[in-house]
């Protein structure tokens, strides 16, 4: 069996089997998944009770650089299997970044043209990466955000429906299924079943839905918690403020045990802290995830908190994330940590 299919067809039943990392692959698809867990120890030093640990799954290690490689691969392979994606068709979707990068990478590897609709204010790095994979970008009005890109993408497909295959990450159940089949089992294995809380940002909802379902299947006591921006006007690339957005059909809020709102400023501060204290340079959605993980962990007597860091930080170096970072000091981290402690009292334990 090719390494390609090994990567995305791991069954939940296989979750207990010994994991052997891919040392060699015949194509980039074989390198997707099996990302490492990093225990966050320096930022949390002295803050958590002895039996509480926080781990971050570093999805930036995927070949396309983000967690989105997983659902993109699953959606495309299922499209091929069902005959919905056939030679001559173009892969199209609305995406502001990481899914676009994943689709562009996979389109290149599999020989399909890719067109991506995104708001014109997506980060410069993301646009360049997507174009470097040979994909075409169609820009939508930056004032309309990701919902504007979704609507423009629909219009383009309506004009020529036979031409396109749209993975439709917001509505495609293969998105959460990719996480049910890979991210969830990996976390279960990597924590040896000790995970008690799973925390992930809400974008399409695919990560938290699929991974959460798997972990709850293994242990119904696992708490699954979503993270979203605290306001419709925010700066957390990749995350959605659900109350003010088109709610993705794959997202079912009732399956969550809790939802934590994080301010853009707090998430940015955590990104600076993770870089300078933990030695991990990540994007703003990882900063938000870490803030939420701390809020939960500080309220626990014991537990194993696992969160997702969706990508690394290189893609954001030209963005507003880094405005004012030079004045960052550890004093500001103390301020942030104090807020996490206060708010943890209201968080589910």
């Amino acid at each position: 069996m090719a390494t390609t299919s090994q990567s995305f067809q791991r069954s939940p039943e296989g979750a207990n089997s010994e994991f052997v990392p891919v040392a060699r692959a015949e194509n980039v698809m074989g390198l997707i998944g099996n990302t490492p867990l990093l225990e966050i120890t320096k930022i949390t030093a002295g803050l958590l009770r002895p039996g509480v640990r926080i781990f971050a799954k570093l999805e930036g290690f995927n070949p396309g650089g983000s967690v989105k490689d997983r659902p993109a691969l699953k959606m495309i392979m299922e499209g091929l299997r069902k005959g919905e994606l056939v030679p001559g068709k173009t892969i199209i979707d609305s995406t502001s970044g990481n899914t676009g990068i994943a689709l562009a990478m996979l389109g290149a590897a599999l020989g399909f043209p890719v067109e991506l609709v995104m708001a014109a204010n997506a980060s410069r790095e993301r646009k360049k990466i997507i174009q470097a994979f040979g994909a075409k970008i169609i820009y939508s009005d930056p004032l309309e955000g990701s919902d504007g890109a979704i609507l423009l993408c629909r219009k383009i497909i309506e004009r020529n429906p036979e031409r396109y295959f749209k993975p439709d990450q917001y509505a495609n159940e293969n998105n959460p299924l990719a996480h049910f089949e890979t991210t969830g089992p990996e976390i279960w294995r990597q924590t040896k079943g000790a995970v008690t809380h799973f925390i992930a940002g809400l974008g399409t909802g695919g990560t938290v839905m699929g991974t959460g379902r798997y972990l709850k299947m293994r242990n119904p006591a696992v708490k699954v918690i979503g993270v979203e921006p605290d306001d419709a006007m925010h700066g957390l690339e990749g995350l959605k403020h659900m109350a003010s957005s088109i709610v993705p059909p794959i997202y079912h809020e009732e399956e969550l045990d809790d939802k934590i709102q994080v301010s853009t400023e707090d998430a940015y501060e955590m990104v600076y802290a993770l870089g300078q204290i933990e030695g991990v340079l990540v994007g703003q959605s990882s900063g938000a995830a870490m803030v939420a993980a701390l809020k939960v962990a500080r309220g626990l007597r014991e537990g194993c908190v696992v969160t997702i860091f969706p990508d690394f930080g290189e893609k954001y170096l030209s963005t507003n994330l880094w405005i004012g970072w030079k004045s960052w000091t550890r004093d500001r981290l103390s301020h942030l940590l104090a807020k996490c402690k206060t708010e943890s009292e209201s968080v589910i334990t």
Partner: peptide, 11 residues
């Protein structure tokens, strides 16, 4: 004058 969020939102 245009007010534009610094991000494109979504994923």
């Amino acid at each position: 004058i245009s007010i534009v969020p610094a991000i494109a939102g979504g994923r």
